[in-house]
């Protein structure tokens, strides 16, 4: 099924289907929240909005909302949602590493990762509601990083529930099959009252990485090849009967 290149569910869509929560469940949730510290969640320190393309079909493109935790100067982990409001579907996870870490990975691992320089320089990567000046130092960091993004819920094709194996995602690029649909960008820009073009101009000074590893953005140097995940049935190695 073709992607609608939308941002996932709009109000009124029933993704996922299901009964509304009753007061009892709300109380249980509130109670748990008060008693539990939820520490890893509180470490999320940044919301970035950008775009991603399915590695196996780059014509399917989505707007993404990354909620980012930094574990050290060279490593970030992101919970990725399809919108930034409380109805957002958790659609996947992205890991971000510095170029320094990326160069230590084996080539077979590197081919699963994408570069971030173009996303930052072109203004596609935005931190909604954060003044550009404040975001600037972090953008300079991100421009030199690589990301690995697995999407587990393809709400763009209307999946009401998470279906199938995870899908590898790629980043938008300035050439070929990596070009992101301008309509998708315009929609995002209007929502946040920003201009990706203006951001692009403002970011001219951000240094391009001196070298982008050609194993990243695999399709660029490998005849538009992408990757997908298959699931095979095997025997399970057990220590007791299953199930």
């Amino acid at each position: 099924m073709a992607g609608t290149n939308g941002t996932g569910a709009q109000a009124g869509d029933e993704i996922p289907p299901g009964k509304r929560m009753n007061m009892e469940q709300h109380m249980l949730d509130k109670g748990a929240q008060m008693l539990q510290s939820l520490k890893p969640i509180k470490q999320m320190s940044q919301h970035a909005c950008t775009f991603a393309l399915y590695s196996h079909d780059t014509t399917r493109q989505i707007e993404t909302h990354h909620y980012i935790t930094r574990l050290n100067q060279d490593f970030l982990q992101c919970a990725v949602y399809d919108t930034d409001d409380c109805t957002g579907h958790l659609i996947g996870v992205e890991y971000i590493v510095s170029d320094r870490i990326f160069e230590t990975l084996l080539p077979d691992e590197q081919k699963l990762w994408h570069s971030h320089a173009y996303e930052v320089k072109s203004g596609l990567w935005a931190n909604p509601r954060v003044p550009e000046m404040v975001a600037r130092p972090e953008l300079e960091n991100i421009a030199k990083t690589y990301g690995k993004f697995w999407c587990t819920w393809q709400t763009d094709r209307g999946d009401k529930l998470p279906m199938g194996p995870p899908a590898l995602m790629m980043s938008p690029q300035g050439v070929g099959i990596g070009i992101v649909d301008p309509v998708l960008v315009q929609k995002r820009d209007e929502k946040y009252n920003i201009s990706s073009d203006a951001l692009k101009t403002a970011r001219v000074e951000i240094a391009e990485p001196e070298w982008l590893n050609p194993q990243a953005d695999y399709w660029k140097q490998h005849k538009d090849k992408g990757f997908c995940i298959d699931v095979e049935t095997t025997e399970m190695k057990t220590r007791a009967p299953f199930p």
């Binding site: 590695s55 780059t58 990757f227 399970m236 299953f242």
Partner: peptide, 21 residues
Amino acid sequence: NAAGKGLQTVLREVDCKHEKS
């Protein structure tokens, strides 16, 4: 519960679909 079987993921290289482009 995978009907009691094992499930193993594997990576496959494919052509990116790109008629539009």
